[in-house]
Amino acid sequence: MKLPKRVPQHISETASFKLFSSKIPDNWIIRDITERDYGIDCYLELVNEDNELTGELALIQLKSRQSIPWTADDYYTLTGVDIATSNYWYKFAVPVFIFLADIDNKELYFISVDYHIKRNFSVFVEQRTFNYKFKKTNRFEGKDGVFSFKFIFYYEYYRQQFENELLFFLSNLQHFHDFQNEHYNQDFHLGIEDEDLIYFEAMHRNFKFLCTYLNIDNPIPKLSELKRRSREKFKEGYHYDLYEHDLTEWVGEFQKLTSEITKKLKQFLQGELHYWLIVNPTVFNYVSNIRED
């Protein structure tokens, strides 16, 4: 009696999905989709350590190999992805990841589509073929694997905000310099007027975000903490949210951070050289010519 048989592709798809499901944290959510023919197999929703649903989503494409043939340099190149699929992934407003399952060894590896495209942009814009080069170090296993994935996820999740904050930083560099000098060694008891306070809050927010995104240590306290300290210092006759004492105390750190952010931005844009030269050469040239001091 002849009976239906499962095709090898379907067996591999099931095996890779089971492996993927077994590796992600138990409190994360896999959201299935009904249409899988367009390069997305499922949504992955990250849940924080307090088991709160964050609304932070990644789109996942699952690929599998019975056994991954790593090169001597611990790389594996995934070929055969249609350029239209890469274009589709690139247009999503949320991060897209490819997870590659090694069925025999029960191991899982990942790559960020957007990250890889921006660092190989000259090949991508040719719109012929585009391959994905997996690193063996990008193994999704245990706490280290989760940490690595989350690091790259947030890197992509906040990418548009980064580009906005980058432009704000560059367009305000001279203003930052003038503002910091203006509020250095002023009379400690003078209150910060609303106009300057609004500008300071914008500068503080900008530096805080860029330091976090570029992995720079930032010793400057949160704005709410600065205001709390100010209330304690000037509790008698307290009329302002901040005083010159508060700005003078941190002007030196802001100046150091300006230099450090500039240095990191040069490195960052150099890593995406062709992306910036094609998409926004003005920004690339401007950053390249900034003096770090």
Rank of each mutant, 00 (worst) to 15 (best):
residue 54 T to D: 04
residue 54 T to P: 09
residue 54 T to S: 11
residue 54 T to I: 04
residue 55 G to N: 03
residue 56 E to Y: 14
residue 56 E to R: 07
residue 56 E to Q: 15
residue 56 E to L: 02
residue 57 L to I: 15
residue 57 L to W: 10
residue 58 A to M: 07
residue 58 A to C: 10
residue 59 L to W: 03
residue 59 L to N: 05
residue 60 I to K: 07
residue 60 I to E: 07
residue 61 Q to V: 02
residue 61 Q to H: 08
residue 61 Q to C: 06
residue 62 L to Q: 10
residue 62 L to N: 10
residue 62 L to V: 06
residue 63 K to F: 12
residue 63 K to R: 15
residue 64 S to Y: 09
residue 64 S to F: 10
residue 64 S to R: 01
residue 64 S to D: 02
residue 64 S to H: 09
residue 65 R to F: 12
residue 65 R to Y: 13
residue 65 R to Q: 15
residue 66 Q to H: 12
residue 66 Q to Y: 14
residue 66 Q to S: 12
residue 66 Q to C: 05
residue 67 S to Y: 04
residue 67 S to F: 06
residue 68 I to T: 06
residue 68 I to G: 11
residue 68 I to E: 02
residue 69 P to S: 02
residue 70 W to E: 07
residue 70 W to H: 04
residue 71 T to R: 08
residue 71 T to M: 03
residue 71 T to P: 07
residue 71 T to V: 11
residue 71 T to D: 12
residue 72 A to I: 15
residue 72 A to E: 14
residue 73 D to H: 03
residue 73 D to W: 00
residue 73 D to R: 03
residue 73 D to T: 15
residue 75 Y to G: 02
residue 75 Y to P: 00
residue 75 Y to M: 11
residue 76 Y to V: 00
residue 76 Y to M: 02
residue 76 Y to H: 09
residue 77 T to M: 04
residue 77 T to Y: 02
residue 78 L to G: 06
residue 78 L to R: 01
residue 78 L to C: 04
residue 79 T to I: 09
residue 79 T to W: 03
residue 80 G to S: 05
residue 80 G to V: 03
residue 81 V to R: 01
residue 81 V to S: 13
residue 82 D to L: 08
residue 82 D to A: 14
residue 83 I to A: 00
residue 83 I to L: 07
residue 83 I to E: 09
residue 83 I to T: 10
residue 83 I to D: 08
residue 83 I to G: 02
residue 84 A to F: 07
residue 84 A to D: 09
residue 85 T to N: 11
residue 85 T to W: 01
residue 86 S to V: 15
residue 86 S to A: 15
residue 86 S to F: 04
residue 86 S to M: 03
residue 87 N to D: 14
residue 87 N to A: 05
residue 87 N to Y: 00
residue 88 Y to A: 07
residue 88 Y to C: 00
residue 89 W to R: 03
residue 90 Y to C: 11
residue 91 K to G: 10
residue 91 K to R: 15
residue 91 K to T: 13
residue 91 K to E: 14
residue 92 F to T: 06
residue 92 F to H: 13
residue 92 F to Q: 13
residue 92 F to G: 01
residue 92 F to I: 03
residue 92 F to N: 11
residue 93 A to Q: 11
residue 94 V to H: 00
residue 94 V to F: 12
residue 94 V to E: 09
residue 96 V to Y: 12
residue 96 V to W: 01
residue 96 V to C: 15
residue 97 F to T: 08
residue 97 F to L: 06
residue 98 I to T: 07
residue 98 I to W: 00
